[in-house]
Amino acid sequence: NQASVVANQLIPISTHLTLVMMRSEVVTPVGIPAEDIPRLVSMQVNRAVPLGTTLMPDMVKGYA
């Protein structure tokens, strides 16, 4: 099972991601792979992401 990136807190819209905001967890459905966490740092979310939500490629500007 592959770990995905999950929000560690509420991430407001247009926030630049930091390591503190993300954790890796095995979830269904599978989202952005956990090994991409370093790549996600300083990218922006294009919507509010609630605590515990799996980050999907379409939620992060410039990821997909």
Rank of each mutant, 00 (worst) to 15 (best):
1 N>F: 11
1 N>H: 15
2 Q>E: 12
3 A>P: 14
4 S>L: 02
5 V>Q: 00
6 V>Q: 03
6 V>P: 00
6 V>D: 02
6 V>E: 02
6 V>R: 03
7 A>N: 01
7 A>H: 02
8 N>L: 05
8 N>D: 12
10 L>H: 12
10 L>F: 13
11 I>Y: 03
12 P>L: 05
13 I>V: 15
14 S>H: 15
14 S>C: 07
15 T>Q: 08
15 T>M: 09
17 L>N: 00
19 L>H: 10
20 V>I: 11
20 V>L: 14
21 M>V: 03
22 M>N: 00
22 M>L: 14
24 S>Q: 08
25 E>K: 15
26 V>F: 09
26 V>S: 09
29 P>S: 04
29 P>G: 03
29 P>L: 05
30 V>A: 13
32 I>N: 00
32 I>E: 02
32 I>M: 03
33 P>I: 08
33 P>V: 10
34 A>W: 06
34 A>Q: 07
34 A>H: 06
35 E>H: 14
35 E>D: 11
36 D>L: 13
37 I>M: 14
37 I>W: 03
37 I>A: 14
37 I>V: 06
37 I>Y: 02
38 P>K: 09
38 P>A: 10
38 P>D: 10
39 R>D: 08
39 R>A: 07
40 L>C: 03
40 L>E: 00
40 L>T: 01
41 V>G: 00
41 V>L: 12
41 V>N: 03
43 M>N: 04
47 R>C: 09
47 R>N: 08
47 R>H: 10
47 R>K: 15
48 A>L: 14
48 A>C: 08
48 A>V: 15
50 P>A: 12
50 P>K: 10
51 L>S: 12
51 L>R: 14
52 G>V: 02
53 T>F: 11
53 T>E: 10
53 T>L: 09
53 T>D: 13
54 T>H: 02
54 T>K: 04
54 T>G: 01
55 L>M: 09
55 L>G: 03
56 M>Y: 11
56 M>S: 06
57 P>A: 09
58 D>T: 09
59 M>K: 01
59 M>L: 05
59 M>E: 02
60 V>C: 01
60 V>W: 03
60 V>I: 15
61 K>A: 15
61 K>Q: 14
61 K>W: 14
61 K>V: 15
61 K>Y: 13
62 G>E: 10
62 G>V: 04
62 G>H: 12
63 Y>F: 09
63 Y>T: 03
64 A>D: 15
